[in-house]
Design a protein around this nucleic acid. Structure first.
Lengths: 282, 282
DNA sequence: ATGTCTTTGTGAACGCGTGCACAAAGATGG
DNA sequence: CCATCTTTGTGCACGCGTTCACAAAGACAT
C-alpha cells in the first residue's frame, strides 16, 4: 500500500544505520501494525478478552503466520494454547507506534481535501491533534473548518515552533507543495504526509509518505483492463505461451500491437481520449 | 507503500493464476508506472522531445536502474545513446495502464471525503469519468456536487449496469462499507477503491485497493518516535525491559482506561496508560 | 502428574524486488 | 569506415518479506 509502499515505498534509510540492528522492526510489519490495532480495538469494544492469531488475522485481512511473525518482532505477547490478550496487545502496539503520546499536526492547503482531512475522525481518535489549518489564500483564511480557524501560511513557522509540531500534512495544489514542504522542514517538521501529486525533495532525516488518489485508480485500471482482456482483446493479442520461452530475437516482439503512428508523430499529445493531462487539484 | 501501499500492500493473489505467466508486469512496476507517466506528462507539456533514464528517474523520484528495468518489462522503447521518446512513452504507458479507454466510476458516500474526490481533478484528467455520486442519506441526495446530482443508493444497480461501471469508490462510514461493497460487486463492479477503515471481503476476481489516511499518519508517528528515541542509541534488548521509554516531550493528555486484566502472565510490568480508540469516520 | 490438545513462536526455504555493473547498441565526429 | 562516447537493457547477487511446517509451551482434563 498503500504503499506504499509505500509502498513500502521510498523509505530512505535515514540516519545511516540500518534498522536491522537491535530491535529493528521491518517496515512491512510497521505498516501492518495499524491494521492489527484497528481490529483489536474493535474486539476490545466488544469486550473480547483474548484472540487467537487465526481469528485476528482474519479480522485484519492477513495471513496468520505473517501476523505471528509480526508480533514476534514486538516480543512474545501471546500465550500458547490460548492466544493474545486483547487489551494488552492494544497497549503494546499503541506504544510501539507511538500513539500513547500526543502528535500535533498541521494541515496546509484547506481545499476540498484539506477540508475533508480536518473533519476526519480517524486522526483525533488516534492521538493526532490538528494544531492548525493553514492556507495561503486570504479568501479562505479566517473561515472556521472543523471548529478550527484557518490561519494564513505566514503564521506557519510560529505555530510549528510554539506547538512543537513535527508532522505536517500537505494538501495544496502540486505547484505549491515543494515550497510548502521546504518551509515546513525549515521550521522543524520532520515527517510529511503528502497528498499533492508531486515528488518532494527533502533532506536526510525527514520522512515523506505520499498518498496519490489517482495513482490508486490507475493501478486498478491496469488490473481491470487485464481482466477484460482475458476474454477478448482488441489490441494486444500475442502474449502468453511464448513470453517466458523465447524472447531475445525480435525486438518487435514486445511491440505487438503498436498503433499506426508508431513514434510520436506530429500528433500533438498522443491521447485517444483527447484528454489533457493536467495536474489540477483542489 | 506502501504503498504502498501499496500498499505495499495487500495484493491478494486474485484470480488464481499468478500474473507472472506471459507478459506479466511485476506489481511493483505497475505501481510506479503512474509516477513515470506523471513525470513524462510534465515533460511533454514543456515539449521536451526525449529524456534519459537518469533525468526521468530523478523527476519521478526513483533509481535510474529501477526505471530502466521497469521499462524493460514494457518492451524496448528507448534508444541507446539518446534516451526515451517522451510522447511515445506517454502513449505506451497510458495504453499499458488502460488509460486510453474510458473508465466510468461511481463514488458511494458523499461525505467530506466523497465530496473532495468528486472535485478531484486528478481523476477526470486520466480517463476516469465520474458516472454517478451515490449516498444513502436523503438529506444529501439531490444536492449537486461537482456539477453532478447526488443520487440515492437505490439507483446503484441500475446506474452500474446502464453505464457499465466496473470501478467503484467507497467513501462511506466503515459500518456501511461491506454492505455497499457487496452491492457493488453484485451489480458488476470488479475493482474497488476503499477509503473506509474496514477490511472488505470480496469474491475472487474482484480487486480491492485501500487507502487509509490514518494508517499513513500512524506509520509516520512510528518513525517520528524512533527518531526522537535515537538519542538514546538503544541497543538490542530482546524484549520488554524498556517498556516505558518515555520520550522527553510535551505532556500528552490522552490517557484513559487501564484495563487490569491486560497484564498477561509472565510480563512483569504493567502498563500505565491506555487509550480508547474509536472508529470514527467522516 | 501425566497425557492430550491447542496455539504460539520461529527456523528455513523460497520468491520478489532492488541495485550494481557491464556488455550491447546506437549516435556522433573525424 | 573506424573510433569514441553516451545510454540503454539486463545478468547477477543480495536482502527483505512471505509462507510453510514444526517443535516448544502452556492450558486443561483425568
Amino acid at each position: 500500500m498503500a504503499t506504499g509502499r509505500s509502498t513500502q515505498h521510498n523509505p530512505n534509510p535515514a540516519a545511516g544505520t540500518r534498522r536491522s540492528r537491535g530491535r529493528g522492526i521491518p517496515d512491512a510489519t510497521v505498516a501492518r501494525l495499524p491494521l492489527y490495532l484497528r481490529a483489536l480495538t474493535a474486539l476490545s469494544e466488544r469486550s473480547v478478552p483474548t484472540v487467537s492469531s487465526e481469528e485476528l488475522a482474519a479480522a485484519a485481512g492477513v495471513n496468520s503466520a505473517k501476523l505471528r511473525k509480526d508480533f514476534s518482532y514486538l516480543g512474545s505477547y501471546g500465550t500458547r494454547g490460548v492466544g493474545y490478550d486483547v487489551e494488552y496487545l492494544v497497549y503494546q502496539i499503541s506504544r510501539e507506534l507511538g500513539l500513547t503520546q500526543d502528535w500535533p499536526v498541521v494541515i496546509v492547503g484547506i481545499g476540498n481535501l484539506g477540508h475533508a482531512l480536518a473533519n476526519y475522525g480517524g486522526f483525533a481518535s488516534r492521538g493526532f491533534r490538528v494544531a492548525a489549518l493553514l492556507d495561503a489564500d486570504p479568501a479562505i483564511t479566517g473561515n472556521v473548518v472543523a471548529g478550527l480557524p484557518v490561519r494564513h501560511t505566514d503564521e506557519m513557522e510560529e505555530i510549528i515552533r510554539s506547538e512543537r509540531v513535527s508532522i505536517g500534512v500537505i494538501t495544496t495544489p502540486p505547484g505549491a507543495a515543494q515550497q510548502v514542504c521546504d518551509r515546513l522542514v525549515a521550521a522543524g517538521v520532520t515527517s510529511i504526509l503528502n497528498f499533492a501529486p508531486t515528488v518532494l525533495n527533502v533532506p536526510d532525516g525527514v520522512d515523506v509518505r505520499k498518498v496519490d488518489l489517482s495513482i490508486e485508480l490507475q493501478i486498478l485500471a491496469f488490473h481491470e483492463q487485464r481482466k477484460a482482456g482475458d476474454e477478448y482483446r482488441d489490441d494486444d493479442g500475442p502474449t502468453e505461451a511464448d513470453a517466458d520461452a523465447e524472447v531475445p530475437s525480435a525486438p518487435a516482439a514486445a511491440v505487438v500491437s503498436t498503433p499506426e503512428r508508431a513514434v510520436a508523430p506530429g500528433h500533438g499529445h498522443g491521447h485517444e481520449q483527447g484528454q489533457e493531462y493536467e495536474e489540477a487539484a483542489g
